[in-house]
Structure formats: C-alpha cells, structure tokens
C-alpha cells in the first residue's frame, strides 16, 4: 500500500457518509473524478482531525495505555548486553519504504538504536529492500550518534540480503544461528517468512518482540513471540517510546477518528434496524 493507500482504505468508509449530501452536478467537470467525492471529503476530514490533534498537542501530557511489548524493549536490550549478543531488527519482507508501516517501524528503530547504543549493543538489520537499507543506515547511524556512540556503527551490519522471500528468510535464519542475537524485533509488514523467523529466534533463545499490520501473520506472532504489538499499537509505538507529544497527538487524532467511525457504524446499524438504508446505502 502506498502512502495514500492507507488513507484511501479507511477514508472510503467515512467519505461515503458525505456522498448523498454532495451536489454532484457542481463537481461534474471533466477534470474531476466525481465518483471519488466521498473519499476526498474523508481525506480532508482525516487530515484536519490528525493535524489539529498534532498541532494542539504541544506542551500537553497524554495517558497512553501501557503496551507490554514496548515496556519489554529495555529488558530485551539489557539481556542482549548481558549475553554480549547483538540485537536483530527486521522490518519484514512485505513492505517497501512507501508503506506507512515501514515508516512507523523505522521510527521505532530510531529509538531502539539510541537505547542499544547506550547499552553498547550493536544492531543487525538485514533487509530485502535496498531503499529500506539506505534509510535504516541513516536512522541507526543517527541513533548511535545521539547516544554518543558513533563508533558502534558498522555498515556491514545493516545490509541488503535478497529480494527473494524465502531466500531472505533462509539468510536471516542463518545470521540468527551464527550471531545468536539476544533480542529480535519483528516490526513491520510480514508475510510467509514471519513464522520461520519467529521460530528460529525462539530456537536461538532470543526475546522476540513482534508487531505487524498483516492480520494473518499477527496470529503467528501471537503464538510464537514473547510480546506482540497488535495492529495500530505498532503505529503508536514510536510516540510511546519517545514520549514525543506531537506523535502522541497523532495517536489522539486516530482515537477521535475511531470514535467518528464507530458512531457512523452504530447510527447505520440503528437506522438499518428501522428499515432506513441511508448510511448503508451510502457505504454501498
């Protein structure tokens, strides 16, 4: 999914609400896709809600529900340090840098890099995508530098492996077997390689912290990993770790949008029970 893909998927639901209210003829110019008006309205609503939530977040304190997977990060890094083992960070084979999930994962990597540098523990970052490797090299180098340990940085640890899914899984499994990381972070978009990586991490005795936007792989992480971030928790994680009010503001924006969606659904169901298809008609 591209950067706009996430917006489109979600906002189609909200946007449909505005469809009936739209005077279609007013937009019927040949340069505008009239049938996408509801999505446009939804994009605008989402953007306004998130931006207001972010911009009003300065100097505010937010309560964020404790997420065990994130609270375990320090312990996992500490354990790796005690073992003299590196940490492995994997963003999954399923995403590219255009995917918001990968960006959210890199935001978490930024904090993990800083913390691991403070512990003096290096990060191994094997990837299937050369563009992600390039971004991760910058992120990890910056994290090490912020912690005052630029000497820890080794470009060879952050590397492109192969684009082949199972070739990638085999290569990363081999790295795990040889380097025996103390902690393995599996955060991003995963596909069939998810369980292979999680089980290998388990077999080398690493603490596994998993999180993905792939609902199918989420079920594998839940049974195979020590800690799992479910769905949206992955996107809230960077704000949770860094405590940055702007990021937490965005999480608040997500909650407001969720309330809007749930309210729309509840109203739609109630109207539907009384035989009124106003909202379900829009959604169709």
């Amino acid at each position: 999914m591209s950067l706009t893909g996430g917006v489109k998927r979600l906002t189609a639901i909200i946007g449909a609400v505005a469809l009936a209210a739209m005077p279609k003829t007013a937009f019927a110019a040949d340069w505008f896709a009239v049938e996408r008006t509801p999505e446009l309205v939804a994009v605008i609503i989402c953007t306004i809600v998130v931006l207001i939530a972010v911009l009003t977040a300065r100097n505010r304190k937010f309560y964020v529900r404790p997420l065990p997977g994130l609270e375990a990060i320090d312990d996992a890094l500490g354990r790796s340090t005690e073992m003299g083992a590196p940490v492995m960070y994997i963003t999954g084979w399923g995403g590219d840098l255009a995917r918001p999930t990968t960006m959210a994962s890199l935001a978490i990597l930024s904090s993990v890099a800083e913390k691991s540098a403070a512990f003096g523990t290096p990060i191994l970052f094997p990837s299937h995508d050369p563009v992600i490797v390039s971004a991760a090299q910058d992120t990890i180098r910056e994290g090490y530098t912020s912690a005052g340990r630029p000497d820890l940085y080794r470009a060879d640890d952050i590397t492109f492996v192969t684009q082949s899914q199972l070739g990638y899984a085999a290569a990363v499994d081999g790295m795990m077997a040889r380097r025996k990381p103390g902690a393995v972070f599996l955060l991003g978009t995963f596909e069939g390689e998810a369980l292979i990586l999680a089980e290998t991490a388990h077999s080398v005795g690493a603490v596994q912290i998993g999180g993905t936007d792939s609902t199918i792989q989420l079920s594998f992480f839940l049974v195979a990993c020590d800690y799992t971030l479910i769905g949206e928790e992955l996107f809230a994680a960077s704000g949770y770790i860094s405590g940055d009010p702007l990021i937490l503001g965005a999480v608040r924006g997500q909650d407001i949008l969720k309330i809007i969606i749930v309210a729309t659904l509840v109203i739609g169901v109630v109207l539907g029970l009384f035989g009124n298809d106003l909202i379900s008609g829009w959604l169709n």
Binding site: M1, G5, K8, R9, A12, G94, Q165, T189, E191, G192, S214
Partner: peptide
C-alpha cells in the same frame, strides 16, 4: 499469489 499482492490489485486496479 502467496502474499499480499491481491491487496495491491484491489487497492490500485479495482479501486
């Protein structure tokens, strides 16, 4: 498919 490609087909070709 063995992965997420049908999602891309839905989001780009279908939508």
């Amino acid at each position: 498919a063995d992965g997420s490609l049908p999602t891309y087909w839905v989001e780009y070709a279908q939508a």
